[in-house]
């Protein structure tokens, strides 16, 4: 593996791992809220969370570009407060990956939360547990397989993300270029061997993550 290939694989894996670490707390909060919600807005919220899964990724990317660009509402604020630039940096890669992989995570985790017998949580309450303790000692441990499986799916999705990343982070070699972007570029430049090499690595990583996720979900019911 050339130094350049190695850098691409390491960078992409690092970005995917970091975004997955962000997806877990955000996604657990969303999934738990949706699983327990009886509000009429539930379907609306579910649709919003799922949207990046079905929208063309470049559309999601475009929205993120407008939000986080220096003249966008969030980008402007970040720049003013902390002189933080997002668009066309590694931060934009992470944001794109988080938004694109969140729906997969929420779907898996929400199902896991919905399968928990609410009487177990009630039992913990009668035994003196606060809501926070109920969540940490009963709800989350019982949903752990679903959460973990969701995290692996999110990681796999993040590894291969292309459209949104391209829009919001661009293609700056060594700074924002991910494997998927590099494969596209290589094909454009006629470097098929390089493209195939990266494609193989990407497929192997994704295969491993999805396979592990499937194993976890299958064993969910002991």
């Amino acid at each position: 593996m050339s130094a350049e290939t190695w850098q691409l694989v390491a960078f992409t894996t690092r970005m995917a791992a970091f975004s997955t670490l962000l997806v877990i707390p955000i996604g657990v909060a969303c999934a738990w809220g949706l699983a327990r919600s009886r509000s009429r807005a539930k379907v609306l919220l579910e649709t919003l969370v799922t949207l990046p899964l079905v929208l063309p990724p470049v559309v999601t990317g475009l929205v993120l570009l407008k939000l986080f660009g220096r003249r966008g509402p969030i980008g402007h604020w970040l720049h003013d407060q902390w002189h933080l630039d997002v668009v066309f940096t590694w931060r934009a890669v992470v944001i794109a990956l988080v938004v694109m992989s969140l729906p997969l995570f929420v779907r898996a985790a929400q199902t896991a939360f919905e399968e928990i017998n609410p009487q177990l949580e009630n039992m913990a309450r009668t035994l003196g547990a606060s809501e926070w303790r109920v969540f940490l000692t009963v709800t989350l441990p019982l949903a752990r397989r679903g959460v973990l499986a969701g995290a692996l799916l999110a990681f796999a999705r993040a590894l291969g993300e292309f459209g949104a990343t391209m829009m919001v982070a661009g293609n700056i070699p060594g700074q924002t270029t991910t494997m998927a972007v590099s494969i596209y570029q290589s094909v454009q430049l006629g470097q098929d061997a390089h493209a195939w090499g990266l494609a193989g690595i990407a497929a192997a990583l994704a295969f491993g993550a999805v396979w592990a996720s499937g194993l976890l979900l299958r064993r969910q019911r002991p």
């Binding site: 039992m123 309450r125 547990a129």
Partner: peptide
Amino acid sequence: MPPRHRGVGYVPQDYTLFPH
């Protein structure tokens, strides 16, 4: 008063033991 402050011992019909 929420259940956790009532100090009751509750045994439901299916026992509801924590499976984990």
